[in-house]
Amino acid sequence: MKLQVPLLITFLAGVFMAVQFFVPHELGQTAFGELLNWGRIVAAFALVLGIQSLLRTHVEKIRRRRRDWPYSTVAIASFVMMVVIGIGFGSDRGSGFDWVFTHVQVPLDATMFSLLAFFIASAAFRTFRARSTEATLLLVAAVVVMLGRVPGSLIVVFGHSGAGEWLHTNMPDVSEWIMNFPSVAGKRGIIFGVALGSIATALRIMLGIERSHLGGGSGGGGDE
């Protein structure tokens, strides 16, 4: 019973979501919207769980004086400060919340994102090798696409010579072609696989074949 009821709910919810996709009537769409609302409500309550988890993790760390515990005080202080500023004084333009968002969150987020540039460079240097024919093709395509994305750099290398001007004019087209055809073809192949995998995963969860998430093992069978 402990297993059957969740399986039944899963099946019914899955069937409903699949059917409503084909029903444009207001009734179906309202029910769909209502289910989405339920999801949002559940998510809102789950956020409480999340906050509780966050605070508990850091309070425990401070209480037990674990390694790097002072950072946990910073995390908790930041959390409390944003809650007080946001709820207490609003979040409109010019408010304290807006100021912290613009001058703390924006630069911090941008900084983390910018790490990508450094990591791409070091990863490319470390692993991008012409080890085989396929890898060489990939390497050449990557260099062409990169140059096509930054045609100005070709002028830096070749100057305003004939070759420089020709590459500067035509490299973006070659890059665009690679993006538009070979890349999209490969991508579509992956999308087909992913779509089928999604359908199959959804089916096996709806039909109760996969139930490891409910604590019943996979389809009643053990794990190896």
Partner: peptide, 22 residues
Amino acid sequence: MGEELYAASAYLSRQPLLVAQL
């Protein structure tokens, strides 16, 4: 890659129904 993520559960468990679904 891609669908291998979805196949992982069947692959790891080798449970007959999941393998058949693959």
